[in-house]
C-alpha cells in the first residue's frame, strides 16, 4: 500500500503539470507585479526603478487606506452571509418535497454574467424610476434614498448584489457537501429521537465542517480581491465611497497610467490576503482536523 502510494514518479505526474501551469501563468505574473511595484511606469514609456517608493506612498494614501477598509467590510459581510447560505442549503438538502426544483431555481442568478446582474441592480437602485424607490413611493416614503449617489449608503447598497451574486456559488458547494453526508448517520440520529434541527446542527454541520472552513477562506479571499460589480455599478464612487482595493488598483493602473503604483497596490492586496488566509486557517483549525 504505502509503496504504491509513495511512487515519486506518479506523484510528479499527478501534481507537476498543474503546478507548472500555475507557476508559469500565475506566479510569474505575481513576481512581475511585485517588481513593477518597484518602478515608476506609465505602461507606454520607460520603466524607472524607484525602490520602495510606491509601497511607502500607498501607506500614506488616504484613498488606498479607505479602499482597504471597504474590502475588509465586504469580507466581513461575505463571511457572515455564509451562515444564511448554510441554512438555505440545509433546507434544500433535507428530505422535504420540492427541493429538487427549488435548488435549481435558487441557483439561477449565479448563471448570469456580471453585466446582466449590474444592469438589473442599477434598475433596482435607480433614484427615480427604480424598483426599490417605486415601492418605497407606494409605501408613502417621500424622499427615498439615492442608493448609489449617497456616499453614506452606497457601500452597503453595493454589497447586497455582490452577496446575492455569490449566494448560488456557496449554496451549491454546501449542498453537494450535505448530500455527501452518509445516510446511516442521519438515520441513526433520527432513531435516537433527534429533531431535524438537532440533526442539522449536531450531525450534518460538524460533518461538513471541512468544507465550511474552505468556504470561509474562499469568501474572505474572494471579497478582498473583488472587482466586477463595483466597477460597473459605481466605478468606486461617488468620490471613493465604494472604492475597494481591486477597483482602486485598476483605476490607478488603467485610469491614471500609474502602472507602477497600481502594481504596488496589487501586491499589497496579495500580502493582505495571504495574512488573512493564514489567520483564518489558524482560527478555524481544530485538533481533530485532518487537513490543516
Amino acid at each position: 500500500m504505502n509503496k504504491v502510494m509513495s511512487n515519486k514518479w506518479m506523484i510528479a505526474l499527478y501534481v507537476l503539470p498543474s503546478l507548472m501551469l500555475v507557476a508559469i501563468l500565475i506566479f510569474i505574473p505575481l513576481v512581475l507585479t511585485g517588481y513593477y511595484g518597484l518602478t515608476e511606469w506609465n505602461g507606454a514609456g520607460v520603466m524607472k526603478f524607484v525602490g520602495l517608493e510606491n509601497y511607502a506612498h500607498a501607506l500614506q494614501d488616504e484613498q488606498f487606506r479607505e479602499s482597504v477598509v471597504h474590502s475588509f467590510l465586504l469580507a466581513l459581510f461575505s463571511t457572515l452571509s455564509l451562515g444564511i447560505y448554510l441554512v438555505v442549503s440545509l433546507i434544500l438538502a433535507s428530505k422535504i418535497k420540492g427541493t429538487n426544483l427549488l435548488r435549481k431555481i435558487y441557483l439561477i442568478p449565479m448563471l448570469l454574467s456580471s453585466v446582466a446582474i449590474a444592469q438589473l441592480w442599477l434598475k433596482v437602485y435607480h433614484p427615480t424610476n427604480g424598483m426599490l424607490n417605486s415601492l418605497l413611493n407606494l409605501l408613502g416614503v417621500d424622499h427615498p434614498p439615492e442608493w448609489l449617489a449617497n456616499p453614506d449608503i452606497v457601500l452597503y447598497a453595493i454589497f447586497i448584489p455582490i452577496l446575492w451574486q455569490y449566494a448560488g456559488f456557496y449554496i451549491l458547494i454546501y449542498y453537494a457537501a450535505l448530500k455527501n453526508v452518509p445516510e446511516e448517520l442521519i438515520e441513526a440520529a433520527r432513531i435516537d429521537g433527534a429533531t431535524p434541527l438537532q440533526i442539522a446542527l449536531k450531525v450534518k454541520v460538524p460533518l461538513i465542517s471541512g468544507i465550511i472552513k474552505v468556504t470561509v477562506v474562499l469568501a474572505i479571499v474572494g471579497s478582498l480581491k473583488y472587482f466586477d460589480l463595483i466597477y460597473v455599478m459605481t466605478g468606486g464612487g461617488p468620490n471613493g465611497a465604494s472604492e475597494v482595493m481591486a477597483s482602486y488598483m485598476y483605476k490607478e493602473a488603467f485610469g491614471s497610467y500609474h502602472f507602477g503604483y497600481g502594481s504596488a497596490i496589487a501586491f499589497y492586496l496579495l500580502i493582505i490576503t495571504l495574512i488573512m488566509t493564514y489567520f483564518t486557517r489558524k482560527l478555524t483549525a481544530s485538533k481533530d482536523d485532518v487537513q490543516y
Binding site: P127, T128, L148, A149
Partner: peptide, 20 residues
C-alpha cells in the same frame, strides 16, 4: 436630477429623452 452622482450619462440622457 435626483441621484445624479449615481447615474451614468446614458441613464441621464434617457431621462431627458423621456421628457423627465
Amino acid at each position: 436630477v435626483q441621484g445624479f452622482n449615481g447615474l451614468s450619462d446614458q441613464e441621464a440622457k434617457s431621462l431627458f429623452m423621456n421628457s423627465q
